[in-house]
Amino acid sequence: MRQAISVQNAGVHFSIRRSLFRKDIIPALRDVSFNLYHGDSLGIIGRNGAGKTTLLRLLCGIIRPDSGKIIINNNLKVTMLSLQVGFEPALTGRVNAILSGMLLGYHKCEVIANLDKIIEFAELGDFIDKPVQTYSSGMKARLGFAVALRLSPDVLLIDEVLGVGDAEFRKKSMAVMKKKLLSDQTIVLVSHSAATVKELCNRAVWIEKGRSIMEGNVDEVIGAYENFFAKKSRQAVNR
């Protein structure tokens, strides 16, 4: 298997300046290592505050690590599936789809070529030419999701957005994601839901308090993760 991204002992800390002489240092990631291979679907699991979102930002190049390193093979295009990137509420869905696609790093013509597919997938119908501010939040989310999903980067990063839209749309997105997995799309999925990771991923990394604790086959990692918390909650009940 070819390696796509290798994360080696990555650490990130944010310093937040409170005033002229005071600043707080907040460690978001301490020591995270794992490998991502082509065609992999890697689940990153951890509780709230484990550093999952920071890790995704690191992977798509928004920030750089303070310690350790990230090696991305031959300039792969890594994109975060972010919903509604740069949406302007006063403009139509069509304009926003183009804008959003361009912000995600695609050429205008690429986005326009895919526009029909995007509109179809988002199930917006005539609403596509109405201002986005008239949309329901579900419609907005669907449009954002459709843009991000229809333009396939080399590596797709997903941050728990599967709870988008109504049940039917969710099912449809799940189906598309699964298809992407089978079609050799490389995916990193971040979630605190063991069930989601189990359903969509073949490998997993468990992150706890900014450290990667375990990496491997999805069933092993999720098994350990669930056991750990089962034990913990038993202890809490007993106490």
Partner: peptide, 17 residues
């Protein structure tokens, strides 16, 4: 290209209010 599209979008969005 992105700057052009974004400038046009911002101008349109500014005036639509």
């Amino acid at each position: 290209d992105l700057i052009l599209v974004k400038v046009a979008a911002n101008l349109r969005s500014e005036t639509s209010g």
